[in-house]
């Protein structure tokens, strides 16, 4: 269940970025997740719901974009999704294939409510800030 470690990192990165921007609340965290990783989206969503508690992301939605695995053959100069599961040998010429995409695990952006626009909520903001970080 390494998704917990991954979710903790996601919340921490969002927290740092949101505080830098003096945001009050994180609404959306957009994640790019390659298919050739060991991360299971459903397990990550579950872990995220636990890890976001007590942070600026406590009500945030985790939007996961699945990035397909694309492999390239340098000899045939063709890029495709791998055949027969994850076969990294070119079916045409037998050359080892290079992984072009599918290993992504990155936060693309976050969407936040900024402090200036909702100053009446400062009291809540202070409450969240006083809670410990992960």
């Amino acid at each position: 269940m390494h998704e917990i470690s991954i979710a903790e990192s996601i919340v921490q990165i969002a927290e740092t970025k949101a505080r830098e921007q003096k945001a009050r609340l994180v609404q959306v965290i957009k994640l790019r997740l390659g298919k050739f990783t060991t991360i299971v989206p459903e397990a990550l969503q579950f872990a995220f719901e636990i890890c976001r508690e007590g942070t600026l992301s406590h009500a945030a939605r985790l939007d996961i974009e699945r990035i397909p695995m694309i492999v390239r053959c340098a000899v045939c100069d063709s890029s495709t999704e791998p055949m027969c599961g994850v076969c990294l040998i070119c079916s045409e010429c037998g050359f080892p294939l290079e992984i072009i995409s599918g290993e992504e695990l990155e936060i693309e952006y976050i969407e936040v409510d900024s402090e200036q626009e909702v100053s009446q909520c400062n009291q809540h903001q202070n409450e969240f800030q006083s809670r410990p970080m992960y």
């Binding site: 990165i13 936060i107 969407e111």
Partner: peptide, 18 residues
């Protein structure tokens, strides 16, 4: 409700470990 502001992050989730 004010429109949410989008902030670009472009960070690898495993950056701290890396």
């Amino acid at each position: 409700q004010p429109a949410p502001e989008r902030i670009s992050v472009q960070a690898n989730v495993l950056n701290a470990n890396q």
